[in-house]
Write a protein that binds this DNA or RNA. Sequence first.
DNA 1: CTCCATCGAAACGGTACGTTCCGTTAAATA
DNA 2: TATTTAACGGAACGTACCGTTTCGATGGAG
Lengths: 200, 200
Amino acid sequence: MEKPPEKARRSIGAKRNPDSADAIRDAAEAVLLEVGYAGFSIEAVARRARAGKPTIYRWWPSKAALLLDVYQRQKRDIDYADTGSVEEDMFRFLKSLFRQWRETPAGSIFRSFVAEAQSDETASAALADYMRERRAHNGRMVERAKARGEVAAGIDSALVADLLSSYAWIHLLTNRLDEDDETIRKAVQVIVKGLLAGGT
Amino acid sequence: MEKPPEKARRSIGAKRNPDSADAIRDAAEAVLLEVGYAGFSIEAVARRARAGKPTIYRWWPSKAALLLDVYQRQKRDIDYADTGSVEEDMFRFLKSLFRQWRETPAGSIFRSFVAEAQSDETASAALADYMRERRAHNGRMVERAKARGEVAAGIDSALVADLLSSYAWIHLLTNRLDEDDETIRKAVQVIVKGLLAGGT
DNA sequence: CTCCATCGAAACGGTACGTTCCGTTAAATA
DNA sequence: TATTTAACGGAACGTACCGTTTCGATGGAG
């Protein structure tokens, strides 16, 4: 990630300095990636960004707010391709999500955010909103499949999205993002085909 | 829960005082339940238990160790009944787990433990061990169903247990333990029957 | 030209960390 | 029985981070 600036920035007058805001966000991301949530403190971010603590507190009311900001800044490069098969869609989704969580700061950041939400009300509310949006968004995979008759009409697409997210979460939170393709595929197959004997 | 003891205990000689150990565990549980993970500090537990901090650190090497101890002391009253239907077994399991998490300190404690595991290596390792054991244990529901031919032989029972746990976790961690029976049942149905059209 | 919100820096009081001493207690050991 | 040993609660330590306040310098807005 970015290096700490050689020289501290200064005020640019009676308005917010966007360089400082960027430096703080970059520093927060770098700290999370390099020393993890355990070392993520406002002081550490301020040191890294060569910014004053009041500058952080002026624009982000809490650690949770800074975390959320950093998480939302993450670019999403998740595979939402419509392959015509809901099973394949779900497999690709999970695989690319695991990959993004493994290979970018996104996983570390999201883990921290979930942890923060367990003790901070603000973070908890933001997480609830975020997850609601994710369920709706990921549910589209199922809706598409319903539209072409692949999936039964009675299926609650948000619920299926919930199951998918759940599977991803628990793997993120317990350091199991390195599952091989076959395992992920089998998990998707259980959701798609169920586990009963005698089926297809 | 218990009240803080009126008088501090004293040494009972050159061996561990079980009263102190109990008081510390009780206090830890009470602090977690009353002020939550945010207020869970070794100092707060020591105050509540009228114990010295060194006494805590002597027997529990870290906050995570104390958390794990307290969680494992929780009585499990989960419904593992064998109803002859894997769908009914899973529904009862989830419903009773949600209930226990809602109505006892277990949910609050486990949430804290998962959060702690996101920044503490010891807690993370303990959580991984614990979840491995849970997958094996919950997988028995599926194994039973396989034995009677209800579930296809190719199904990985640990993977199904993982899906069940995942669904429970995300509901715990995002304050959604109050799902009604129908929602839980539909989630289980997706796992059991899949979501394809044209099935049973 | 004056006002004023911003900047980084430094310091504040407060809390919790994990550790080290202390005097007291009583079991274990010789 | 006399001595050793280890646990106890309590107090204090230095470190780290919290969130806040004060400061002088900066430079755009009125």
